[in-house]
Design a protein around this nucleic acid. Sequence first.
RNA 1: GCGCGGUUAGCUCAGAGGUAGAGCACUUCCUUGACACGGAAGGGGUCGCAGGUUCAAGUCCUGCAUCGCGCACCA
Length: 1028
Amino acid sequence: MSEIPKAYEPQSVEEKWYQFWCEEGCFTADPARVNEQRPGYSIVIPPPNVTGMLHLGHVLNNTIQDILSRKARMDGREVLWLPGTDHAGIATQVQVEKALKREEKKTKYDLGREEFLKRVWAWKEKHGGIIIQQLKKLGCSCDWTRERFTMDEDYSRCVQKVFVDLYKKGLIYRGKRMVNWCPVSQTALSDEEVEMKPQKGFLWYFRVEVADAPEAPATESSAGEGTESDGKDEKPTYGPIVENGKTYLLIATTRPETIPGDTAVAVNPKDPRYTHLVGKHVIRPLPVENQARIPIVADEHIDIEFGTGVLKVTPAHDKADFDIGQRHQLPAVDVLNPDGTMSELAGADLKGLDRFEARKVAAAKLTEIGALVKEERYENNVGFSQRADVPIEPRLSEQWFLKYPSVKEALACVEQAEEGSARGSRADSGGSPESSSQVLKLEGDVLDAPSNTARGPRALPGKMRFHPDRWAKVYDHWLSNIQDWCISRQLWWGHRIPAWTQPVTGPTQWVRALPQAVEENTPWTTDLQSSRGFDYSLSGVPGHTTVFQRYRLHGGGPGIYAATLSSVEEAKLAEYGFTQDPDVLDTWFSSWLWPFATMGWTGDPAVDAENPMLKAFYPTSDLVTGPDIIFFWVARMIMAGYEWMGDLPFRNVYFTGIIRDKQGRKMSKTLGNSPDPLDLIAKYGADALRFGVMRSAPLGQDVLFDEKDVELGRNFCNKLWNACRFRQMQGGEVEGEINPALLGSDDKWILLRLDQAICEIDEAFADYKFNEVTATLYRFFWSEFCDWYLEAAKAAFQGEDPARKANVLAVIDFVLGHMLRVFHPFLPFITEELWHDLGYAEDLPEDQGGKTIMVAHWPKPFDNDVKAHYGLEPTAEQLANAKYDLVTKGRNFRREFNIPANKKIAFALRPAGQLESHEADVIRLLLNAETLEVNPAYVPPKGTPSAHSPLGELYLPLEGLIDAEAEKARLTKELAKVEVEIQKVEQKLGNENFTARAPAHVLAEHRQRLADWQARQEQIRAAVDCLS
RNA sequence: GCGCGGUUAGCUCAGAGGUAGAGCACUUCCUUGACACGGAAGGGGUCGCAGGUUCAAGUCCUGCAUCGCGCACCA
């Protein structure tokens, strides 16, 4: 034991212990140690981007994972918290491209693919470890020996394997379709990467001439626009315009620049205004040099109410239009380049312009040719690229798609917490895998045995639970309506698609080139109808195969696709004239394998069945992540888990809230409202940051972050530090034996409070309510242990009884020893430091806290034997409570009568019964009294303030110093309050319905309450009498 | 449009049928031998609104208001 400094200084402590834990291998999981007595517990980290920097979201997320991991270790489980990063395709590539431009003024094309990728790897080696280092500062107990990266060789192989497997199953296909195109990143995106945002723009109304209109009836309105009768909101009505014998249609659009791409206009077949024109043609106004005739088609999709009821159809640049085009066999004219500029086909006026510039020019052009009728301000939802924050461009493009596998299983496994039946599963998870901790039987003090509480809404066997469970509904909805996943990205950084292609130029070309067997067995497939591929070994080397499919694109030529994992086969394919697909896979197509690809999964069932890591740690126990990636990641991992492991990937998913600033705004770099967690750690300490964040993060709510929370965390640590320092300053034997015979009411009270706290904490843990745990920790340690128990203990320390003093020390050690352990998951550093400083590690076996508090046993609530042994009967608690109540009232006198807090004054107590002298000593000390005269026959001088308690009457005899009138006023005020309470209770008890129907214990409680208030009333009245 | 969440003390949030809670902020007093990153004592709420169920409603039900978040092809 060394002297500890007055204020807690986290920096050196944190550094020292983190290094110690790592050097001693405290975080390293060993699958060989897993058995019935020692169940495995596992979490895979949601891999942060290699480009990433730690932000408060990471702090929240990873602190929770660390708490779960550390708690599980103390529960006696073998814990794997598996860390790593993902390669973040677009984000990383963009960063490196930017750096390249800045430093060398070059583009990736200047370097070429291979050289560019070298640069990305170099960049990754240099910057990729930053976030990992930051997680270490936070205290994360990840198994760093098993750190993974999604581009690791083994991991990449898993990705390829999965691709070929799905391809072979006919679930992956290539198709020419409308995709979400990001003109900045110049790649396709999945639907999930598109964010709808309201945009202010214009609705342009322009007219087009019907080229082959029937003779206009004379009665036809000649105006295209009218207004509906006399309504206040003048809602224009539209119809064909007849003017000078010509018929025109009025069309509303937000995107006039795409007019050159229009290949039809469409109306609803039920729209009487236009039915006679269906089948006719209009003259497309742009480009002016190419005013083509395009048909008027009838399609149900058109909303009669919207705009003019006429829709321009641009199959190449709108998803809905594309579908209409399919239904009516319309050509698609692509008027945009991949970078968002207008193409040749857009015509001379627009060609080369950026799409937004072109929009203005197109509108001007319409005005110029007299086609524009009007423009109005308009707000609509536009899809934005999440990554580049620019409007996406729906674009017809050839991409790889995936029909999601194992959807049925994924839908079935997540328990929907509905009213009724599902509620039943809340109770004991008797048969659940989580209860495997119940088989734990560890020797030692009952108080030291690990907790085996497995209450709460944990998942049933084979099932999964979301916390909070409302996300199950969101998940369910998404999974029930999913579209095929566009998995190819036009990037260089990522997993290159292991598919090779060769277009078929002539009817027999490929047949000559490839072996007969391939031709005969290779099925045809299209993007609408898939089938299983044909497996063949081109090289003839055993175990090396290629999967072939013959492919016909929509409106395109036929081709052959081949997918293989084998480099030997790849060489052969090259020989036969195949080229590898240049694209890479969506990053999520690799992260969805994270829970098992990180554990050495190979895809070979025989090998995987013998994999000790998978056997010990799959399925993982808990996943902690943000709800913003429920579709991107969580749902897809569940599908992958079923598809390749035949089992769900995790049992519980904890969804964190989103961290916002104290005004409720999202954290963002541009707002500058996102504090750097490392600064906070430097200023307050990692424990303080952890505690502060956890304290303000209720389950299922967003977190409004305030630096004050971290300050509070620091204060808490400092308080803990000083409480332990106080203990240390008392000296004496460490963790002496507690003698039950010497326990006073305060000792018993704090032991009961400790028991209560442990119960509450276990319960909150079972429900993943971490902020409730912190609330209990805070209350128990600060409001109960420090404010009352330590203060009361000073009476023994100042007293003359060495046996009592030693016993109080033993109680303090007992409580602190338990407290440090329940604090440990939240405050790993300071608890480890104090654990050793106070000498609690000394007598314990190495693997039970002797080396580190990390594996000290989690405290267990007291059983009846323990309670009986220490005499922890409810009356002990009542006596202590009565004492504290009396003390509070006594202290209140100081304020009422303006007596400075530091002035020692004399009190007198007329006890209601027997009061042991050391109990009186405690009261005297807590009152900061000069003396406390305990006298059953005490008669107070007139005008003496008094307070009533079950322990007796407390008096403050300050002759001459007390203003009798003021005291009378005080008592009268209190009397009024008491009378209000009496009235309330009497009213209730006077209600026959209440007395007849309320349960007995409620009734009894009310009667007791009334009696208490009435006694109080009497006492105050007596006191008032005494004053006059 | 559909779905989900919030609305409780000045602020941030707990509480889910039986006497309204915490932290911060505020007021007064206190550098007393663990801690001023501290101690003591206080003040402060008709629990968004309106109905209903109940002996009893922040708590359960129905509607409404309001803020926020998902999902959705209205040009």
